[in-house]
């Protein structure tokens, strides 16, 4: 199978490449360099929004495209986010449709549902995407998910897969991993929601499963067994710093404006309310079962903390 991976140079793209390149021909598309790329990976250094990029798709004869080229940097401006994420994703969809690519895999996130007080414990794929209600900065990420859904209906000839993993942890640098690597992570006093984590390797396995012919639709991906946030922090080796919830929001807002933190204030809702998914569909349709349990997931996270510190 010839698989194109957009945004291959990110940490997760590299991880996925190492997993896929032995069984599949992997072609990478990214404007950033990919140091340490496996020798058999063909890399095109180009912005996906450029016209020239279509040539890669035209000549590539890809069987599948894994679209990871999504900007998550919360410091980037809303304009940058929207042009890069929404326009980029739209282009990739156009290329897939025009050049007869059979499969498109989008990596969305369970955050599109959003942590809310009245969330049911296990949200299914049908749950409304309320993530932008209080966290406006992720509107474009919800937009990508929605674009994928309309593409799925408009172009049945392309098998479209939307994956919505819960908080990804591992060597990646995203908000949940960074948070759990803190020595004194903030918690909200009097709140201790149940949290689901997924190890980065399990996400890669989910993508591998989704590459199989026939697989299409939206899938929640959950990893290890859920646990209370306090237990997760304990296993990750941190000591929680409880802060009253009414003070934490304004404080974090201030720190964010002063550029003293990497966490936007609306993320605090994840420390307060549940945002868990029902992953039965991925289990039944994709045959996906996570390999990493809670201990293994957090043991790996602790290792990455030591590595990043040294």
């Amino acid at each position: 199978m010839r698989v194109a991976i957009t945004g291959i140079s990110g940490r997760f793209g590299a991880l996925l490449t190492r997993r896929l390149h032995r069984q599949h021909t992997v072609v990478g598309i990214d404007r950033r360099p990919f140091p340490g790329a496996p020798a058999d990976v063909e890399l095109h250094r180009i912005d996906i929004r450029r016209k020239r990029c279509e040539e890669v798709f035209r000549k590539g004869a890809f069987d599948a495209v894994v679209h990871l080229n999504v900007m998550h940097d919360p410091r980037a401006s809303s304009a940058d986010h929207h042009t890069f994420n929404i326009q980029g994703t739209t282009r990739v969809m156009q290329y897939c449709q025009r050049h007869g690519i059979k499969k498109l895999i989008l990596l969305s996130s369970a955050n599109v549902y959003g942590p809310r007080a009245d969330n049911t414990q296990f949200l299914t794929e049908d749950a409304p995407l309320m993530g932008g209600e209080r966290f406006h900065q992720i509107q474009d990420l919800i937009g990508i998910d929605m674009l994928g859904q309309s593409f799925f209906w408009k172009h049945p000839e392309v098998e479209t897969v939307i994956l919505r993993p819960v908080h990804i942890v591992g060597a990646v640098r995203n908000a949940p991993s960074n948070y759990l690597r803190l020595d004194r992570p903030w918690t909200l006093a009097g709140f201790d929601p149940m949290v689901q984590l997924i190890h980065e390797d399990d996400v890669a396995m989910g993508i591998e499963r989704a590459l199989r012919p026939g697989a299409q639709g939206i899938f929640n991906l959950a990893g290890c067994e859920p646990a209370p946030l306090s237990r997760i922090i304990e296993l990750a080796g941190g000591r929680p710093l409880p802060i009253p919830h009414f003070a934490a929001g304004p404080m974090l807002e201030r720190l964010w404006k002063m550029r003293l933190t990497t966490f936007p204030a609306p993320e605090l809702d994840h420390l307060r309310y549940v945002c868990m998914v029902d992953a039965a569909r991925a289990r039944e349709v994709l045959g996906y079962t996570p390999r990493y349990d809670l201990d293994a997931t957090l043991t790996h996270l602790r290792l990455t903390r030591a590595l990043l510190a040294s």
């Binding site: 007080a117 009245d118 969330n119 049911t120 414990q121 296990f122 299914t124 909200l188 006093a189 009097g190 709140f191 201790d192 149940m194 009253p244 919830h245 307060r272 309310y273 549940v274």
Partner: peptide
């Protein structure tokens, strides 16, 4: 209940669950 500090944790640890049909 889930939006109340302490009460939410207390209830949930003792097995109380938000009243949704799915739950």
């Amino acid at each position: 209940v889930p939006s109340l500090p302490y009460v939410s944790v207390f209830f949930s640890r003792l097995g109380q669950v938000l009243g949704t049909p799915e739950n």
